Amino acid sequence: MAATQHLRWDPAQYQRHGRDRSRPLTELVARVPELPDRPAIADLGCGPGGPTLSLFGRWPDARITGLDNSPEMLAEARAKAGDRSARSVRFVEADLASWRPAEPWDLLIANAALQWVPDHHLRFPDWVAGLAPGGVLAFQVPGNHAAPSHRLMREVAERPRWRARLAGVLRTDPPVLTPEGYLAELSPLCADVDVWETTYLHRLAGDDAVLDWVSGTGLRPVLTALEDDPEARTAFVAEYAAELRTAYPADAHGTVFPFRRVFAVARRAA
C-alpha cells in the first residue's frame, strides 16, 4: 500500500476480512468535522479502492484522489471504480514517504496505511501545510506491533533457518507512535487535535483464521521476500501458523483476535 519498499500485495487476500477491516474507517470518518461543499479529499494509501469509494457515503459531491504505490492495489481500485469515475474519483501512483500536496486539500485521510511509511510523523508538517484553511488530517493505524500475531512472526524470522534470509525484512521497532506521541506531533501544527485508541475483539471463522488475516497485511513483507522460493515460503508459513494456533486457540465460536488501533483527527486553523 504505502510502503517505501515494494511489497507484493494480493487484493483478494486483503479483502477477505473486509467487513472487520472497514469498521475502523467508518468510525474515523464519523469523527471528521464538517467539510466544505464538494470537498477535495486525498486517500493516502488507498489500497484496493473499496474504502476510498465508501467516502462518497458521507461526501457524495467530493472530488477524491486515491494515492498508493502498489500497482496491484491501484489496478484493483480502478477496476472497482469503473464508471464511478464520473463521480470525480481517480487513483494515482505515489509514495507517501516523499509525497507532498501540490494543491490545497480539505481532507487528507489514511486508513491503515501510515504504518508502512517509516517515520511518517515527519511528513505531518508538509501534509498539514497542504491543507486548505480548516482542512483536516485524519488517520488510523494498527497499534498491535507487540501483539502475539506480530511478535511471533518476528520470533520465527529470527530462527536459524530464516535469520539471514529475512534480515531487515520485518521491523523490530514499533512502526507507529503511541497516542500521546501523535498528540505531541500534531498539536503544534493544528488548531484542534483528537487522538484515541480502540481495541477490537474480532471473532474470526475458519481454520488458521489469524494467519488468514495477517496474510493480507502484516505478513506481506515475508511473503514478498520468499516469493521466489515457494518451498521456503510454505515452510515459514507452517512454522508461524503453528505458533499462532497456540497463541490464538479456536473454540466452538471461532477465534478471538484482539486488534488495537490508534486514531487521530487534526484540523488546521481556519
Rank of each mutant, 00 (worst) to 15 (best):
A2H: 02
W9A: 08
D10H: 12
Q13D: 14
Y14P: 05
Q15W: 06
R16L: 13
H17N: 13
G18T: 10
R19A: 15
D20P: 00
R23I: 12
R31C: 11
R31M: 10
P33H: 08
P33G: 09
D37W: 07
D37H: 11
A42N: 04
D43H: 12
G45F: 07
G47Q: 10
G50Y: 14
P51A: 13
T52G: 11
W59A: 02
P60N: 10
T65M: 11
S70M: 10
E72M: 09
A77G: 08
K80N: 11
D83A: 15
R84K: 12
R84D: 14
S85A: 15
R87Y: 13
E93G: 12
D95N: 12
L96V: 01
L96S: 04
A97Q: 07
R100E: 13
P101G: 09
E103Y: 08
W105K: 02
A110C: 04
N111K: 03
A113P: 05
W116G: 01
W116A: 00
V117M: 00
H120I: 06
H121Y: 12
P125L: 08
D126T: 04
W127L: 13
V128A: 06
A129D: 14
A129N: 11
A132C: 00
A132G: 06
A132H: 05
A138E: 02
F139M: 13
V141P: 04
H145D: 13
H145F: 06
H145R: 07
A147D: 15
P148M: 01
H150Y: 10
R151I: 01
E155D: 14
V156F: 08
E158V: 00
W162C: 04
L166A: 03
L170K: 01
R171D: 12
P174M: 00
V176T: 14
P179T: 06
P179L: 05
E180P: 00
S187R: 15
P188E: 06
Y200N: 02
D208S: 10
D212A: 15
T217W: 09
L219W: 07
R220G: 04
V222M: 04
A225M: 03
A225Q: 10
L226A: 05
D229G: 06
E231R: 13
A235P: 01
F236P: 03
Y240R: 08
R245C: 02
T246I: 12
V262H: 13
V265A: 09
